[in-house]
């Protein structure tokens, strides 16, 4: 799974360079996020702006990542496209994540 990882404004920013988080890559996603989180203590911003399809397995992998980071670190979601936002709303998982419209908004802490 292609990701970019950088540290910015005291956050670990993980940018997904994939269009799909689906059952075919859910395990790979979880492993990639574990590796990206290694060796740091910052909260993680996951930039989803390139992702245009997510299924329940992909959603579960994001929840698993949040649980893996808790309780000391948070997983913050940024840049959700309309199809991704819709799956979070349908399953009501939008209520358990900090969600920002863009990466810039997440970095500056401005909610939607």
């Amino acid at each position: 799974m292609q990701v970019s990882v950088k540290t910015e404004a005291d956050f670990c920013v993980v940018g997904l360079r994939e269009q799909r988080i689906d059952a075919a890559v859910a395990l790979d996603f979880k492993e990639t996020m574990r590796q990206a989180a290694q060796g740091g203590g910052e909260n993680i911003i996951l930039d989803l702006s390139e992702v245009t399809f997510i299924d329940s397995s992909g959603l579960g992998a994001i929840v698993a990542t949040m649980k893996f980071l808790a309780p000391d670190r948070s997983l913050i979601l940024a840049g959700m496209t309309a199809p991704v936002d819709r799956v979070f709303k349908l399953t009501r998982m939008d209520s358990v994540f900090a969600i920002f419209p863009t990466l810039a908004a997440a970095l500056s802490g401005q909610h939607a």
Partner: peptide, 25 residues
Amino acid sequence: HAQPISPVIEDLPEGGFGWFLIRDL
């Protein structure tokens, strides 16, 4: 059925959304 959303992060569901989405849509 819709998965219950727990206020405790470690109790959040990681699966079971599939058939909810099928029946919803």
